[in-house]
Write a protein that binds this DNA or RNA. Sequence first.
DNA 1: CCAAAAGTGTTTTCCGTACACCCATGC
DNA 2: GCATGGGTGTACGGAAAACACTTTTGG
Lengths: 219, 219
Amino acid sequence: MDDRATRRPLVAVVVVIFTVREDRLEVLLIKRSAEPEKGLWALPGGLLLDGEGLDAAASRKLVEETGVHDVYLEQLYTFADLDRSVREGSVAVSYFALVDASVARLAPREEWLPQWHSLEDRRELAFANGRILDYAVERLRNKLQYSNVAYGLMPSEFSLGQLQRTYESILGRGLDKRNFRRKVLSLDIIAETGRVQAEGAHRPAKLYRFVRREPVTFQ
Amino acid sequence: MDDRATRRPLVAVVVVIFTVREDRLEVLLIKRSAEPEKGLWALPGGLLLDGEGLDAAASRKLVEETGVHDVYLEQLYTFADLDRSVREGSVAVSYFALVDASVARLAPREEWLPQWHSLEDRRELAFANGRILDYAVERLRNKLQYSNVAYGLMPSEFSLGQLQRTYESILGRGLDKRNFRRKVLSLDIIAETGRVQAEGAHRPAKLYRFVRREPVTFQ
DNA sequence: CCAAAAGTGTTTTCCGTACACCCATGC
DNA sequence: GCATGGGTGTACGGAAAACACTTTTGG
C-alpha cells in the first residue's frame, strides 16, 4: 500500500438538517448500521466524491436524505478527527440546512435509516456530533435575527402567526406578537400576497410570501 | 500508483496574519518561488503534517513565518479547490491571526519570502486569496466590536490613544474619542496599570493593559 | 505662551422590550 | 353570544452617536 496515501487525510461533509414539525425544532439523524457506535444516531455525512466541491457534496447529501434541493445551506465549521471510524486524520466540514418537513421525503432505507429527532432527545448521539449540533443551533438562532433563512422552513404562502410560531420553535421561547410583526415587516423580507386564509372560528389571516427565496443578510 | 490515493483530497491550512504598522492594517504575504503563479504573492499556508490537527497546523504556520505563538487565532472558512498548484480536489481550511509587528520576526528566507503588505496593495495576489482576505477583514472588523481580540496587536502596556489608533486602522475610519473610551472601559477588558507614558510636548497618557490575554467574547 | 495629545459629560436618536384591547369569523 | 386567533400603538430604558472644551506637558 502506498505509504503517503495512508497519511493523506480524508475529507467528509456533515450536514445538520433542521426542520420544524408540529412547533418543534427537529434535526435529521441517521441510525448507524455499522461499527463503531453501531445503533447510535449520527448526523448525515460522507466522503467527497472524486473532484466534488464542498458545497456540492453537502447539497448531494441533503438530496440523498431528504429529496429536497435549493434550500438554505451554509458552511459552519471544520473539525479534524471527528469520526474516528473513517480513519485518524480525517477532516469533516460541517454545514447546516433548513428544509420544509412537509416537502422532504426521507430515504426509506432499512439500513442507515434517516429520521427526524427532537432536539432535546439527544441521548444516543454518536461521536462528537453533539458539539456540532449545539453550534449549528446557536448559529441558526443568530441568523434568524438578521436574515431571511426562515424561507427554507415555510411554505410559499403563510400567515404571520405561522411564521411567528416557527421562530418561537427555533428560538425556544415565546415572542411578543406586536414586536415580532413590526420587526419582520421592517426587514422587508416578506410581502403581502393579497390573499387570506380562513381556518377555524376566527378572523382570517392575511397571507405573506418571502420576497426572495435565497439567502439575504442584513446589517 | 495507488488509484484511490490520487483521488483523496489533500488538506491544507491557510493563515491570514494581520498586524498594524504605522497606523495601517497589514497582512503577511509570501512571494511564490514556484509555478504556477510564480512571483505573485500568496497567503501563507501548507499541508497538514501526519496526524496533525487543524488548529495545530495553523499555529505551526504562524510560528514558522513570524516566530510568535499564543496569539489570537480563529478558524474562518473552508474552501475546496483553492490552490490548484497542490492538486485538484484539495481543501484549504483558512484561519486568521493577529500579531504585534514589533514582536514578529519574519523568516529571513531567499525563497518564499514573507513580507507585510498594506491591504490596499493587492494587485499581485495569487489564486482566490483575495476572497479569503476580504472575508478575514470583515470578520476581524466584526470581532473587534464585541471581543478583546485587539490584545493580539498591542504591546503589554499602551495608552487609550494608541488603542484607538489601532481600532481606527483596522476599521478604516475615525472614531469619536469620548465614545471610544466609554465603550472599551465599559467592556472591562482593559485596566489601568497605574503608570503613565510621557512622550512629546503634551500631557502624559495613563497606561493600560488587557485584563486577559486570551480570547473573550461578549453578548 | 503656544502646540499637541490627554482627558472629560450631556443630549439626541434609535432599537428592543413590555404591555392590553378590538376585530372578524365559525359554531 | 362566545371562543378563537388576527390585528394594532404607545411608553420606557439602554446603547450608540453627535458634539466642544479644559488639562498637562515640552519646547
